Simulated scan of single mutants.
Amino acid sequence: MKIQILKIGFLFLTLAALCQTADAQRVKKKRNDGGGGNTTTTAGTGAEQGATNVTRPPVNPRAGIPIRVDSTGMAGTEGIGKSMRPTGAFGHITDSINNKRQPLTYEYLRYDDALFAEKVWRELDLREKMNQSFRYAGQEDNGSQMFIDILLKAVQEGKVTPFADDRFITPKTMTEVTEMTQGSADTNEVRDINNPDVVKEYVVTRASFDPKSVNKIRVMEEWVFDRESSRLFCRILGVAPLLSVMDASGKERGTKAMFWVYYPDLRPVLATYDVYNPKNMGASRMTWEELFEARMFSSYIVKSSLDNPGNRNVRQMIKDPILALLEGDNIKERIFNYEQDLWSY
């Protein structure tokens, strides 16, 4: 009986060894058939091997030299992910509750009750003290808490649609948005150690997009006086992050909109993110949607439809920047006085 058991065990060991040998031969054959086209391109030295692990590098059609993309140094990747332990000393609102929060429905405004309506374009300079919450570089379980990161995440996840203009006519593709959020690229040659005259590959090092490079946000809104309720309403219609345009000397000479998003589509997303309170994080539970509706930000008017038949910006009509700011305050005061002049005390 013992001899039979030993024979059976020896048979199983033999079969296992044969199967392992066959698997090793199949893997070796698959690697040989694949050639070098689908393998990961790495350099010879340890520093080059630690640079990146990019599969199937594109080939330079002119020189036939492979191009490797180096994605090291990408900022904003630290601390991403959900914490496996409570990160606060007191009970926090769970993610399930955060995700269920919805903005309040707007009060319906009839077309016939709109006694007064004017559109206004504002710019928020995030470098101002009152707007510092927009630049809070913190990480939570739902991701980065910086406003531009929240906006880009909503666009990348398809929760909102990016548009090329403030009339929301032409949607932008994700490729166009990604190109605007990519940093500058630098191409370096990697030469053969044994023959320095031979270029093995080109390494393209692309810097990561710095969300703090977005210093301004443009907001389009409409002020409506409703005769039914006898009050002035402000409805935000669109939001656009602005990229700074630099001249040769490195001085900012203007801005350009990355994309426009329709604010009513963005409200449900903003309702799931809390605003950073620099004074007391335990006293405030304000969401980004509540911040915009309560207008707790500092801004200045750059364009309006009030007495503007040419549909031009304030800076196009007034070149002096100080006088342009004063004209924006004048527009704000005229809208405010319209409501006040309807009442008699």
Results as ranks from 00 to 15, higher is better:
residue 322 I to E: 11
residue 334 R to C: 02
residue 314 V to C: 10
residue 320 D to V: 02
residue 294 A to N: 10
residue 327 E to C: 09
residue 273 Y to H: 13
residue 301 I to D: 04
residue 313 N to P: 02
residue 264 P to K: 13
residue 329 D to N: 09
residue 285 R to P: 08
residue 262 Y to N: 13
residue 286 M to C: 07
residue 280 N to F: 07
residue 291 L to H: 09
residue 300 Y to E: 09
residue 322 I to S: 09
residue 299 S to N: 08
residue 283 A to D: 09
residue 288 W to M: 04
residue 280 N to M: 11
residue 305 S to F: 00
residue 297 F to T: 03
residue 261 V to Q: 14
residue 319 K to W: 11
residue 260 W to S: 04
residue 294 A to G: 08
residue 325 L to K: 14
residue 311 N to R: 02
residue 330 N to T: 04
residue 317 M to S: 14
residue 278 P to N: 06
residue 293 E to W: 08
residue 301 I to L: 04
residue 277 N to F: 03
residue 276 Y to G: 09
residue 298 S to L: 07
residue 321 P to G: 12
residue 264 P to Y: 11
residue 318 I to H: 04
residue 273 Y to M: 02
residue 331 I to A: 00
residue 285 R to M: 10
residue 329 D to K: 15
residue 328 G to P: 01
residue 329 D to M: 11
residue 270 L to V: 01
residue 296 M to V: 01
residue 297 F to L: 09
residue 292 F to L: 06
residue 310 G to A: 12
residue 331 I to E: 00
residue 332 K to I: 00
residue 290 E to N: 05
residue 304 S to L: 03
residue 304 S to K: 11
residue 282 G to L: 11
residue 279 K to A: 11
residue 300 Y to Q: 10
residue 295 R to D: 05
residue 315 R to N: 11
residue 296 M to K: 15
residue 308 N to D: 05
residue 291 L to M: 15
residue 290 E to P: 04
residue 296 M to N: 13
residue 288 W to L: 06
residue 333 E to I: 00
residue 305 S to L: 01
residue 277 N to Y: 05
residue 303 K to V: 00
residue 287 T to L: 10
residue 333 E to H: 08
residue 279 K to V: 13
residue 313 N to Q: 10
residue 316 Q to G: 05
residue 308 N to C: 05
residue 331 I to K: 08
residue 286 M to Q: 15
residue 330 N to G: 15
residue 304 S to H: 10
residue 276 Y to D: 10
residue 278 P to V: 06
residue 300 Y to V: 03
residue 311 N to C: 08
residue 303 K to Y: 02
residue 292 F to N: 11
residue 284 S to I: 13
residue 308 N to K: 03
residue 289 E to N: 15
residue 300 Y to H: 10
residue 283 A to K: 15
residue 286 M to Y: 13
residue 295 R to S: 04
residue 328 G to M: 00
residue 293 E to F: 03
residue 301 I to T: 00
residue 309 P to E: 12
residue 330 N to I: 01
residue 269 V to D: 08
residue 275 V to S: 12
residue 304 S to I: 01
residue 300 Y to I: 04
residue 326 L to S: 05
residue 265 D to I: 11
residue 327 E to F: 02
residue 326 L to C: 05
residue 329 D to F: 07
residue 295 R to N: 05
residue 260 W to T: 08
residue 296 M to E: 11
residue 285 R to H: 13
residue 312 R to Q: 12
residue 260 W to M: 02
residue 330 N to S: 15
residue 289 E to W: 04
residue 291 L to Y: 14
residue 297 F to P: 01
residue 314 V to Q: 06
residue 283 A to Y: 04
residue 333 E to L: 05
residue 334 R to K: 08
residue 298 S to Y: 11
residue 320 D to G: 10
residue 333 E to F: 04
residue 301 I to N: 03
residue 321 P to D: 08
residue 275 V to C: 12
residue 320 D to P: 07
residue 319 K to L: 12
residue 273 Y to C: 01
residue 278 P to S: 06
residue 334 R to A: 03
residue 286 M to R: 09
residue 262 Y to V: 13
residue 307 D to L: 10
residue 280 N to A: 12
residue 280 N to S: 14
residue 312 R to K: 13
residue 300 Y to T: 04
residue 273 Y to V: 06
residue 321 P to W: 01
residue 299 S to M: 06
residue 273 Y to A: 03
residue 298 S to P: 06
residue 270 L to N: 07
residue 286 M to T: 15
residue 325 L to P: 10
residue 269 V to Q: 07
residue 305 S to V: 03
residue 290 E to K: 12
residue 276 Y to F: 12
residue 288 W to G: 01
residue 297 F to V: 04
residue 288 W to V: 01
residue 263 Y to R: 10
residue 298 S to M: 15
residue 290 E to R: 15
